[in-house]
């Protein structure tokens, strides 16, 4: 340790042994600050939008014949009194401390409602992400390594089709074949995790496939083109000049470099998967966040809409933060650049 910290000659100036961790820490901190800023701005946007939304929840709940006193009492109870700033701060403060407010319609804490649903939506999106990565990586690598050959054409044709298929339609077709005709799966509904992990996974299998396949098609295409770009790089030729076979060069030098653009897409896909899962939940009648949000919109239960939207946006921003960290782990240049 002591030795490596001494400053040397023209490339010195920095303490060599501590560069990676110090830079990584700085990079992480910077990304974290930007994460927090994004969350603050996003929450302001969401709050403002819900504020402009017409209709007073209290009068909506009590109907047109409500007494003014009852109305005022309810407004106070729902936290609708006070200036915009104080209400925003109260909402954010509540969110941070785990108090998401009370549902207008059900009069139960939003957190409880969200909590149950989250355990459907989050596993669904994660499962789909996992599945699409597991399909896309081998497919993309295979296509790239067989560039221009029949195998490549086949994979590319399949992905071209996969990209074009709407996931909810694909979901309906899966239900038609595997639930209605073959009866391997149930057509919808969710048994709950208390019936066991396998039962839960069984119920999420078809939805996850429906969500994952179109995304896998996109990811496989990105993986292929990114790999092909890397295969044209000078350092791949250097690797071959060392005596690596084409395959070795691809695995040892190509993949990690190709991963950088692929990570970006994985980050973006998470947001598509979340949005997609909201739609897919409709097909399979899954009691997830999607169902909750549509029920809340029709009941004008705006506090629930607000909280769920914030939660979705939070997950996307969080995911992007993780992707940024993954970048830096993959690419040492990034740590130095910031």
């Amino acid at each position: 340790m002591e030795f490596s910290q001494i400053t040397f000659g023209r490339t010195g100036r920095r303490r060599t042994a501590r560069i990676p961790s110090a830079l990584m820490l700085r990079y992480t901190l910077k990304r974290f600050v930007s994460l927090v800023l994004s969350l603050v701005v996003a929450s302001m946007v969401i709050f403002t939008v819900i504020e402009i939304a017409p209709g007073d929840p209290a009068s909506f709940m009590l109907g047109i014949n409500a007494q003014p006193e009852t109305l005022a009492a309810l407004r106070a109870e729902l936290g609708l009194e006070g200036s915009k700033t104080t209400r925003y701060l109260a909402w954010i403060g509540g969110m941070v401390t785990g108090d998401f407010g009370t549902s207008y319609t059900y009069r139960t804490p939003v957190l409880d409602m969200v909590g149950d649903r989250l355990w459907v939506s989050l596993p669904l999106a994660s499962l789909a992400l996992l599945l699409s990565t597991l399909i896309a990586f081998p497919a993309g690598i295979y296509a790239a390594s067989r560039r221009g050959q029949a195998g490549d054409m086949g994979v590319m044709g399949a992905t071209q089709l996969g990209v074009a298929v709407p996931n909810f339609w694909f979901a309906m077709m899966l239900v038609l074949v595997f639930a209605i005709n073959l009866r391997w799966f149930s057509a919808g509904g969710f048994v709950g995790w208390d019936k066991g992990l396998l039962a839960g996974l069984h119920a999420l299998t078809l939805p996850a496939i429906a969500l994952a396949l179109p995304q896998a098609a996109i990811l496989a295409r990105v993986m292929r083109s990114s790999l092909l770009d890397v295969l044209g790089e000078d350092f791949m030729r250097t690797a071959r000049a060392k005596g690596l076979s084409e395959r070795q060069a691809l695995w040892r030098h190509g993949l990690r470099n190709a991963l950088i653009p692929v990570l970006t897409i994985i980050g973006l896909q998470f947001s598509f998967l979340l949005a997609g899962s909201i739609i897919i939940e409709q097909v399979f009648y899954l009691p997830g966040l999607g169902r909750l949000i549509f029920q809340s919109i029709s009941a004008r239960d705006l506090i629930v809409v607000e909280s769920v939207v914030m939660l979705l946006v939070f997950s996307v921003i969080m995911m992007n933060f993780l992707v940024d960290l993954a970048y830096a782990a993959v690419d040492p240049r990034l740590r130095a650049r910031t």
């Binding site: 946007v45 017409p54 705006l302 809409v305």
Partner: peptide
Amino acid sequence: DLVFAFPSLVIAILITAI
């Protein structure tokens, strides 16, 4: 980046809410 954090479905939900 901020707009990217709002999937189009979420934007649609917010607009529908209004």
